[in-house]
Design a protein around this nucleic acid. Sequence first.
DNA 1: TTGTAAGCGTTATCAC
DNA 2: GTGATAACGCTTACAA
Lengths: 349, 349
Amino acid sequence: MTDQRRMTLKDLAQELNVSTATISNAFNRPDQLSPALRERILKEAKRLGYSGPDAKARSLRTGRSRIIAVILAESLTYSLNDAVASEFLSGVAEVLDAHGHTLLLLPGRGHASQPPGSANIADGFIVYGLMPNNKLLDELPTQRTLVAVDFDIEGCPTVHIDDTAASYKIAQHALNELPKRPAIINLRLTKEVCNGRVTAEHTLLPNTSTISRARLEGFHSALSEQGVDVEQVPLWNIEENTFEVCSPVIAEILDQPIEKRPDLLLCMSDRIALTALTLAEQRGIRVPEELRITGFDGIAEGQYRAPRLTTVRQDSVGKGRVAAQMILGRVPLAQQLLQTELLLGDTCP
Amino acid sequence: MTDQRRMTLKDLAQELNVSTATISNAFNRPDQLSPALRERILKEAKRLGYSGPDAKARSLRTGRSRIIAVILAESLTYSLNDAVASEFLSGVAEVLDAHGHTLLLLPGRGHASQPPGSANIADGFIVYGLMPNNKLLDELPTQRTLVAVDFDIEGCPTVHIDDTAASYKIAQHALNELPKRPAIINLRLTKEVCNGRVTAEHTLLPNTSTISRARLEGFHSALSEQGVDVEQVPLWNIEENTFEVCSPVIAEILDQPIEKRPDLLLCMSDRIALTALTLAEQRGIRVPEELRITGFDGIAEGQYRAPRLTTVRQDSVGKGRVAAQMILGRVPLAQQLLQTELLLGDTCP
DNA sequence: TTGTAAGCGTTATCAC
DNA sequence: GTGATAACGCTTACAA
């Protein structure tokens, strides 16, 4: 009572002349003691300023923290400001929250000032996106559940969409009307840093199972199917999915002489597509008459505007929900494949 | 070695024939043992699959977890998908990350399925936005640092902007050209749920220190200064800062007969303003010729589009940085007031 | 430079 | 229904 330090369960027990076990039970197992006693304990606890068992001690003892970590391959700054990642996180958060768990955010490519350290406090890990290196993953406590989203870890349950099929679908739609000069804008496709046209100089990233490569493949099959030689289709690359990084590349594309300027832009993301749309609007290029644009993701920003973006929607929130449910063991750990849906907007009717 | 359970520091010590203290030092205090021994320990640890001290035990022992919790007044789903909150979080994350801390996300208005419980694992708390009730706050361990952002907790360090001054500034700009029919769209201003026109029937929320009230006050002073009777200025209310909730109200405003339709919309947020802009575009209402619109926040989406939104920028990322620095004790715990900046876009030149 | 041992605040297993 | 007591895995005086 005259203590400076936070009151502990033991203190409270002493104060109330009951054993520590009884206090613990009052908080954790209501059926283990009489309602009256429990009532009294809870009331006294509040009065004396004891706000329940300490989480650190409890987690040490029980081995569980009710904390789930999401490891974001991209930086936290990027992820939090990216609509797709945010939706994913909100799906995760929703499920965790509903089951009394909380969300710890870990950067994959961090300042690495410290080893993860505090990370292994989590009961489980959701890894979102291909990690830049496996160092962090290696350090993850084995024996703890791990779910991989949007990429594969050998032997791990995963949540995916079929990127190739989805991008094939949208490209196929766009090719209903055959373009004169189609072009593709992709994301982080080259080994070398390249913000601009991908040429013979560049080598594509080896990993063929990246989202980037998968979507490119979808675009290419649809093009081939229409008899287009994919080698002739200009391919542009962008290093980060943000307006700032995209816009100079898009400007370069749109500012070509009109006879070289594409009339169809297959974009790997809505962010790229929206940037293209904005820049086209600024230049007075009419969409879709002079330039058709397709996106990928189906983020709100593309749908709640005029003209609406033509794109393929992936259910990022759903992805998050499924991943969280897997981690919590509420659905079987498996390889989940989520559906996508064509969104026919105005930018490529 | 033949153990099923995760290897512990003690196991490792036994294996290597050194004391537990030495192992601990190898990980935490390099200067406490010879480099050679440390090298050997680290190498053996890796070989035997010991990935460093357990965070749960360590945090119990040291009393610190290197985890900072951000309590979001809104739901996690909303916050993660709101540009302003996301920017704030990324500012927080950036600073935490740089100092080897991690970010735990807690919903303020949660399903409340469980008491916070695992929350008090955090070393400090950043509370973002006015909490719906004080229950959660009361349960927060006293003696732990607490920083309030965008609202006040008595005796707490805070990070703020001057909402009244900022909204006065933008309104003053807008009133350079005197509107015939100005209107204000505000957020969660009434006690009753009200998506639509605020009438005499409604009672404003009592708390005059909310962001909503503060911004309204700024609008009103600017209007009064121009001799406009603020009682005559239509005031609309919206319950949530999302396109879905905003758009019906905005539609109602814009679909009034042209002689009643406002020619200036002072919006309490960029989200509201952008919704207004989209709906105006859909209706062929010319902005700014027939309708001028101002926002508040300065989110990217409003600036990376054509026409650009006229608004006042608050540095949400900076807010997050400052809050995080305070929590980490890198800047003095105080009442910080951040600057705002007028952003003259195209929607109200 | 290294080892010993006492907790950190709980929960769980027993007896009673 | 209730009360001792032994872990949980680690850090850190302090002793050697």
